[in-house]
Design a protein around this nucleic acid. Sequence first.
DNA 1: TATAAAGTTTAGTCCCAGCTAAAACTCTCA
DNA 2: TGAGAGTTTTAGCTGGGACTAAACTTTATA
Lengths: 218, 218
Amino acid sequence: MASVAVENYLKSMWELGPADVATQELAQHLAVAPASATRMLQRLSERGLVAHTPYRGASLTTTGERKALAVVRRHRLLETFLARTLKLGRDQLHDEAERLEHALSPALEAAIDDYLGNPQRDPHGHPIPGPQGELPPEGDVALGDWPLDRPAKVSQVPDRDVEKLAWLEAQGLVPGRELRLVARDPFDGGVTVKLDGKLLQVAASVADEVRVSGEGAT
Amino acid sequence: MASVAVENYLKSMWELGPADVATQELAQHLAVAPASATRMLQRLSERGLVAHTPYRGASLTTTGERKALAVVRRHRLLETFLARTLKLGRDQLHDEAERLEHALSPALEAAIDDYLGNPQRDPHGHPIPGPQGELPPEGDVALGDWPLDRPAKVSQVPDRDVEKLAWLEAQGLVPGRELRLVARDPFDGGVTVKLDGKLLQVAASVADEVRVSGEGAT
DNA sequence: TATAAAGTTTAGTCCCAGCTAAAACTCTCA
DNA sequence: TGAGAGTTTTAGCTGGGACTAAACTTTATA
Ligand SMILES: [Mn+2]
Ligand SMILES: [Mn+2]
Ligand SMILES: [Mn+2]
Ligand SMILES: [Mn+2]
């Protein structure tokens, strides 16, 4: 029903939301000219998928969000499926899923979900929306915001940025890994963590994209 | 590089070739108006993928055939992959592969090929072209053309027609199955086969789409 | 508070790929 | 051989989705 372009716009809107998204931000995220984003927002608004206030920004309607979550679900199921079957590394998953997500029938989506045993998270630790878009509130917190000395477990790593992902992988900072914060740079938000007895400097830009939780941490 | 539409046209040209393909035949195969097929043939001709003689028909150039075989390879690898991992039935494979085949990167194609152990045939028994489009000549022969009483093994079944496929499956007429021809209708080309001691009437339209070979048949 | 800068939308084009209707071609057969 | 039937191409239109340049709003700054 929805074209590849429409699905991509909706997914971007969801990723940048839920607050009003600026035309320019959306355009940048999709590597498209601002004028193109405006045109599309008008079409999406026409179709009731987006609420657009000219010059002010746009946000997903309930219908739009439901469709966006369907794309996110397919994306994350595919990442999980490719990792499980083909043993692809975390840094190879995103780009493949980015294209395949638009070619998955409901039947195949269900078959994959079934095969994987209804997984709750993808290999980056991102939660997988349910068949109707259900997404339980998760208590994960940005690494930079975790209190000092409290044991934590890595729950989410970024999926888009292959550079960061490779570095995290090399340092062993992957979902499931336990660590503690030993220091926080008060200016730029960078942190020093201890994992496996070793100290590691994590830049603010990276710490922003890694999420942790206290669940199951010793 | 090539759009979904272009890839589909090339694949259809290959399936209908190698002789000159009529505009109408191509259009029908793609469920498109003849005028649309003409337009596309002109564009493909412009790009050197097709040799088109107005009012006479068109055929793939070497470059065009190479690209077509790349699509066929992805299609058949995907069918094999989905069957192996998700245990999808032979009748569920084609439609899914039809869309996914356009979203497969060279890296993922290679990973799947590797995972499957470089399969030579897909679940319908169709040969899978190699990475460079290599397709060894195969000696399989239409079921209707097989001599009487000589043992044969089913090597290929159709993939597009879910009806026929379901019937074949129900009768046990699947790749690998051994059988003998016991009679041939001289008028319409239908045949009677014996498999597992039981006799079975096979209509000409079905017998045309099933291929057999003598290899490994007792 | 006026004006400049930044952000957004409109206007005008382009390409792709589909459609219908009309014109052109080819083939067959009387 | 020359209609008429069938096939193919051309002509003209549509919609999706991209672009640049120009116009318009909003926001920031002097
Ligand atoms: Mn991803
Ligand atoms: Mn992910
Ligand atoms: Mn197929
Ligand atoms: Mn097949």
